[in-house]
């Protein structure tokens, strides 16, 4: 994983942990799916997407954002949407 990808995962992980109330040490990887995390359903997924959009200053395409299979696909989508803001 490149430094840029590493940084992207770090920032996405932070939003995932906040959205689902996970402890700071909870490890989120590109392979993490909704089945791995308590409370990740279609409604909380939209809250996650809102948090991601806020963090990266992008608007993600709705249909694709709804059908993501894992965190890796979310990272790809952020990249495609040109997300680059987010000094946290």
């Amino acid at each position: 994983m490149s430094l840029a990808e590493d940084e992207l995962l770090r920032r996405v992980s932070a939003v995932v942990r906040t959205t689902f109330g996970l402890p700071p040490g909870y490890v989120v990887s590109a392979a993490t799916t909704s089945a791995d995390i308590d409370g990740w359903d279609s409604l909380s997924h939209s809250i996650l997407i809102m948090g991601i959009e806020e963090q990266f200053g992008v608007e993600l395409p709705m249909e694709r954002a709804f059908e993501l299979h894992d965190v890796g696909e979310l990272m790809d989508l952020i990249g495609e949407a040109g997300g680059e803001r987010g000094v946290d």
């Binding site: 799916t33 909704s34 089945a35 791995d36 308590d38």
Partner: peptide
């Protein structure tokens, strides 16, 4: 610590369309 949870969640989601919280 999580495999069973993952398997249960997947099965219920695929069969009933319901996301099990915990």
């Amino acid at each position: 610590g999580g495999d069973l949870a993952r398997v249960i969640r997947r099965r219920i989601l695929e069969r009933l369309g319901l996301a099990i919280h915990s």
